[in-house]
């Protein structure tokens, strides 16, 4: 985790220049489209397109590698878990049964295997756009973007405060837990039963929450003294007016979303099984 609590990497590409609110809209539209369908062909198209966009943002592989692995490992576990618990679920969805292996308590079907592939691809198709958003949007732009999309500014500002104080709180947390461990309070694996360890976490919680509460007071004072909440609106230092590219991206998103919804309403895009 970077120091500001987000993973922004500075570059000068189309994506970095796009307004945060536009990127957020794009992320939302993309997510809705993924939710609409259950068709692996759609996901493959989205995935390949997403990878193309990701390439254009020139993010170094070493920095994003970990997140990619996280999602792959998640998919492997999720798939194995699904096979174990619902090995015939694909048949239920598709209405046909092609037995692959008899597991004893249930049969594993080819439909399920294909269903798992589809599901994994669905998750994978969300990955590039998410990474793109996270790595190309500076945290300072995030709150202003939300506000521009209609989120009340006070709620949007809470995001800023969270980003701002995560590193400080992390420092507090580490120093408190270190001091506790030096007094013999065990929290690591093998240092007491789970309930004991949980209770030891509770011991940290008290000083951590107490110091957070006093921080809430002083930060709120500081904000009041500098006029936070004075007006029904506020401006954002880091925001800039939408350029032609921004408007174009929003229009493209709206059009693609409209087409997708129409297609779905027409009945296209339910679980697709080629065999």
């Amino acid at each position: 985790m970077s120091k500001a609590g987000m993973l922004y990497i500075e570059r000068d590409t189309l994506f970095h220049r796009l307004d945060g609110a536009v990127k957020l809209l794009m992320l939302l539209a993309w997510t809705v489209i993924v939710f609409l369908f259950q068709d692996i062909r759609v996901f493959i198209v989205l995935f390949i397109f997403g990878i193309g966009l990701l390439k254009s943002a020139q993010l170094p592989w070493t920095r994003i590698r970990l997140l990619v692995w996280v999602i792959i490992v998640f998919n492997i576990f999720n798939s194995l878990f699904t096979i174990l618990v619902s090995p015939a679920y694909g048949s239920e969805v598709n209405g046909t049964t092609t037995v692959l292996i008899d597991l004893g308590y249930e049969v594993l079907t080819l439909e399920t295997v294909f269903y798992i592939l589809t599901l994994s691809m669905k998750y994978m198709s969300l990955m590039p756009i998410s990474i793109l958003f996270v790595y190309t949007t500076h945290p300072t732009r995030f709150a202003g973007s939300l506000n521009r999309l209609g989120v009340p500014y006070k709620i949007a500002y809470a995001f800023n405060i969270a980003f701002r104080y995560i590193p400080d709180l992390k420092k507090d947390f580490l120093s408190i837990s270190n001091a506790m461990q030096a007094r013999g309070v065990g929290m690591a694996r093998g240092e007491g039963t789970i309930v004991q360890r949980l209770k030891h976490y509770a011991a940290i919680a008290i000083p951590l929450v107490q110091s957070s509460l006093s921080r809430i007071d002083t930060v709120a004072n500081a904000m009041d003294l500098r006029g936070f909440g004075k007006h029904a609106k506020r401006t954002w230092y880091s925001s800039s007016p939408w350029g032609r590219v921004d408007v174009a991206v929003v229009i493209i998103c709206a059009v693609v979303l409209a087409i997708s919804i129409t297609a779905r309403v027409q009945g296209f895009g339910t679980f697709w099984y080629p065999f």
Binding site: T140, V219, A222, F228, K233, R234, T235
Partner: peptide
């Protein structure tokens, strides 16, 4: 007291609350 995520943003805090244009 340092509320902003960057130095310039923090200095701008009072302006933002006063609705000054960026």
């Amino acid at each position: 007291q340092f509320i902003g995520l960057t130095v310039d943003e923090d200095v701008a805090f009072a302006f933002e609350n006063d609705c000054v244009a960026p």
